[in-house]
Amino acid sequence: MDKILLMLQLQAELNESTNGKNWVGGVTKNGKIINWKRCIYMECAEMIDSFSWKHWKNIDKEADLDNLQIEVVDVWHFVMSLAIENYSKTFKGTVDDLAINISLMESFLKIDTTHEAFASQDEIIEKVEIIMLDVLSRNTLNIEKLISDFFDLTLMSGLNLDSLYKLYVGKNILNQFRQDHGYKDGKYIKVWAGEEDNVVMKRVWQSNGDLKPDALYKELTKLYFALNKSE
């Protein structure tokens, strides 16, 4: 419950700082329409590319399971955003109410455990496509089913509540770092000395178990300017 609430709160804060106080209305402070459903299915497509699913190209390439987990966390950002927006627009309640309801879901109880095993490639891709269908359906959004399917995917991707939380907090800090360093206007450098910033963040975060979020931000700042000084 506490980890879910904190993640929802962090996501709401990030959305407000990035898009303005009225982001739950579906429009940014710059008048740009927000489509969380599209964000979800586009990230899901990127997630599938973690596997060598193409029958005509790189058929023996190994799955990139590290990237899979990062993409799962990216989708979680948008699932939470959609859920907060849904609760606001349908008068279901606040972020606190959403956190309570999620904590009572059977699928949530499953991820609140020790888990490191991966499902097969075909099983993961099938679940990813189910999530895509959840948000592409023309029927009324079933936010509870979407969250439940996402938690199933979390387990299938070798994650549990603790690892999802840690990766989410790390990516949340990275997203804030990106916004503070020109991501929106295209000035931000995403590849640091040949490595994508996601990879750098995950390595720093996982290799420093006692690192706090503000310390991670400072470490990313140091690495960003050191690795990109020749850019």
Rank of each mutant, 00 (worst) to 15 (best):
residue 138 R to V: 09
residue 141 L to N: 02
residue 142 N to C: 08
residue 145 K to P: 01
residue 147 I to P: 01
residue 147 I to R: 00
residue 147 I to E: 03
residue 149 D to N: 14
residue 151 F to C: 02
residue 151 F to D: 00
residue 152 D to N: 11
residue 154 T to P: 02
residue 154 T to E: 00
residue 154 T to V: 14
residue 155 L to C: 09
residue 155 L to G: 08
residue 157 S to W: 05
residue 158 G to F: 02
residue 161 L to W: 03
residue 161 L to E: 10
residue 161 L to C: 13
residue 164 L to V: 10
residue 164 L to I: 12
residue 164 L to N: 05
residue 165 Y to N: 09
residue 165 Y to W: 09
residue 166 K to R: 15
residue 168 Y to T: 04
residue 168 Y to P: 01
residue 169 V to M: 08
residue 169 V to T: 11
residue 170 G to V: 09
residue 172 N to H: 07
residue 173 I to V: 15
residue 176 Q to L: 13
residue 176 Q to I: 13
residue 176 Q to R: 14
residue 177 F to D: 08
residue 177 F to P: 06
residue 179 Q to V: 12
residue 180 D to C: 11
residue 180 D to S: 14
residue 181 H to Q: 06
residue 185 D to P: 01
residue 185 D to V: 07
residue 186 G to I: 01
residue 186 G to E: 04
residue 186 G to H: 00
residue 187 K to A: 14
residue 188 Y to T: 03
residue 190 K to Q: 11
residue 190 K to L: 12
residue 190 K to H: 09
residue 191 V to T: 14
residue 191 V to K: 12
residue 192 W to H: 06
residue 193 A to Q: 12
residue 193 A to K: 13
residue 195 E to H: 05
residue 197 D to G: 01
residue 198 N to V: 15
residue 199 V to G: 01
residue 199 V to F: 13
residue 199 V to R: 12
residue 199 V to I: 15
residue 200 V to C: 07
residue 201 M to Q: 09
residue 202 K to V: 14
